[in-house]
Computed example of a mutant assay.
Amino acid sequence: MNRKVVFRLVNDLVMTVLMLIAMAYYITGNMIHEVVGVVVLVLFIVHNFLNRRWYKAILKGKQNVRRILQIGINLLFLVTMVLMMTSAVLISSNLFPFIPINNDMTLRQIHVQTAYWGFIIMAVHIGLSWGMIINSVRRMTGITGTSRIRTITLRILALLIVAYGVHSSFEREIGSKLIIYNPFGNWFNDDSIIRFLIDHLSITGIYICGTHYALKFIQGQERRAVQKI
């Protein structure tokens, strides 16, 4: 398999996991939070460098529904990440303490809420490319044929992940965190980094699966419309 493709997959996987670890601020502490954040920034820059040709081709080619959605989500993700990273540097107390900020409450609100919005948009971003990711993994593992049992098993697994993700989303009040900033936090006393990752990865599963199957439905509708012409 192409080494560049493997490197991209590994880079994106590590960046996704580290973004979730960075969100576990009250578990890891501020120093780890800031160090992980810097690593995420580097990986995000690498991600965009590796996909720099995509930016050059934004206005080229046929603009179908999938492409329009992809452009909108990708640009929104870029803006969200820039806001989150910029506010992070400005409110840093360990790695960049020399930047003078007198009243940083607004910046903290921007940082926290863009982090949660970025978390959701990232999952949708992955969902838009899920078919390509699966095909890359299939080539990497040498899986060429189809299997009804494997397909059913994976779909049941996806359903279980989504079900647990919905439960975790309500339990952790993700919806309210997207619109309301709580400076005192809202964490469980018995929380651990492992449970945090499992819960939030399952929440990403909601948006990855939802986006992937919604896109398949739209593409199916487009093909049927073309066949009728």
Rank of each mutant, 00 (worst) to 15 (best):
I208D: 15
T204S: 08
S176P: 02
F217Y: 03
W117K: 04
F196P: 15
T141D: 05
M140G: 12
R150K: 13
F7G: 12
R223I: 10
N64L: 10
Y207G: 03
I68V: 13
R150E: 12
I194E: 10
I21K: 04
V112Y: 00
R224H: 06
I193T: 02
T144E: 09
V36Q: 01
V89F: 12
N2I: 00
N189S: 13
M19V: 07
Y207W: 09
Y25R: 13
F196V: 11
L69M: 06
I91H: 00
K228L: 14
R223Q: 09
R172D: 15
R8I: 09
M122N: 08
E34A: 01
Q219W: 04
L159A: 11
L128D: 08
V6P: 08
Y26H: 15
V82Q: 05
V65Y: 06
D191W: 02
I156N: 06
K228Y: 08
I208C: 15
L76A: 14
M105W: 01
I193A: 02
L160A: 09
L128Q: 06
T86A: 11
A225P: 08
V79L: 09
Q113N: 11
M132W: 09
F49V: 08
D190A: 01
Y26P: 15
G72K: 02
I161L: 14
A24I: 00
L160V: 12
N102E: 02
Y213F: 14
Y207P: 04
Y116Q: 05
H167L: 13
M85N: 10
S169E: 03
L75C: 13
I180T: 07
I143F: 09
T80I: 07
V137P: 05
G127F: 03
M105I: 06
N48T: 14
V46N: 02
C209G: 00
V46R: 00
G72D: 06
R66I: 05
N74D: 14
Y181C: 02
S168V: 06
G185M: 03
A88F: 09
Y116G: 11
N74W: 03
S147N: 10
N74A: 10
F77E: 09
N74P: 14
E222P: 10
G29A: 01
D191C: 08
R8Q: 11
V38E: 03
I73K: 00
F188R: 14
R8M: 10
I134C: 06
I27V: 15
P97Q: 02
H125P: 10
I110C: 12
A225S: 12
H125D: 04
L20C: 07
A158T: 07
V226I: 15
E173A: 14
P183Q: 00
L76I: 14
A214L: 14
M105G: 04
V17K: 07
K62T: 10
M85W: 14
G145W: 04
I161C: 11
L197H: 10
V36I: 11
I21L: 13
S169R: 00
I203T: 06
K60I: 14
L160R: 01
V40N: 05
M85S: 13
L41F: 09
G175F: 08
L128H: 07
F217H: 01
N103F: 00
S129A: 15
I133D: 05
A57G: 14
I194Y: 10
L90P: 05
I58Q: 01
N186E: 05
F119T: 11
N186W: 00
L159P: 08
G131Y: 08
